[in-house]
Amino acid sequence: MTTIELKRVANVIRQDIISMLVTAKSGHPGGSLSAADIVATLFFNEMRINPKDPRWEERDRFVLSKGHAAPVLYSALAEKGYFPKEELQGLRQTGHMLQGHPDMKKTPGVDMSTGSLGQGLSAANGMALAGKLDGKDYRVFALLGDGEMAEGQIWEAAMAAAHYKLDNVTAILDFNGLQIDGATDSVMCSAPLTEKWRAFCWHVIEVDGHDIDALLAAFAEAKTVKGRPTIIIAKTVKGKGVSFMEDQAGWHGNAPSVEQGEQALKELREEAANLG
């Protein structure tokens, strides 16, 4: 896909996120919106996947380690055609498919059940080890949160991925600077992250996580790195695309009201119009 097409996809994903959360009356807008460009680039350009065959053995895998951002994943899956778009409106409701956090038993296209932070990279490593064992060339992507960096298991997994030279693993860090209780630096400082990942023997790429061209280039580079895993540290803005949500910790886990949703959608539609 071209850059402009990917931008349009990311915009549609953002609109889906807002309308899903308004209907659900709960969910996590901030970290879903911050990841929209990353997820759009992955699912609509980078990943080798087939929506008609969600369990295709040769497919690239995606692990949403920051599982609370499920809406961004669900929208991408629906837009790709894994399931009807109407399902999005059932988010978080009794008896519906789309759980508050990704559930691989219930939702086609979800490669790993997540929601408890810190566990996703380990699972990605496992998939990557299996791929190497089976002589398959699929790749595994894991999207992590910066608050999530506080979990010890992340660093256990970081060590293991380098130890086993998992060059088929690409982690993406949604580096939005916020978690629930405030700025990541003030809650539990994990800086300097670039140096930490380098010290763990990962190939580190730093990008603007809302610059589609930069993301495309980063994924292209990651593919060429051999003998070690890559992490793309994507600088993002939590709540990106909705003015009143941007960079506000308060929009981590609160759904917009109907009126707020309208306002947000208006802004996003204007952005879409500007994209042409």
Binding site: A24, R92, G100, H101, G115
Partner: peptide, 8 residues
């Protein structure tokens, strides 16, 4: 816990 689902 409700909407967050079975994982929580």
């Amino acid at each position: 816990v409700g909407e967050d689902g079975g994982s929580h």
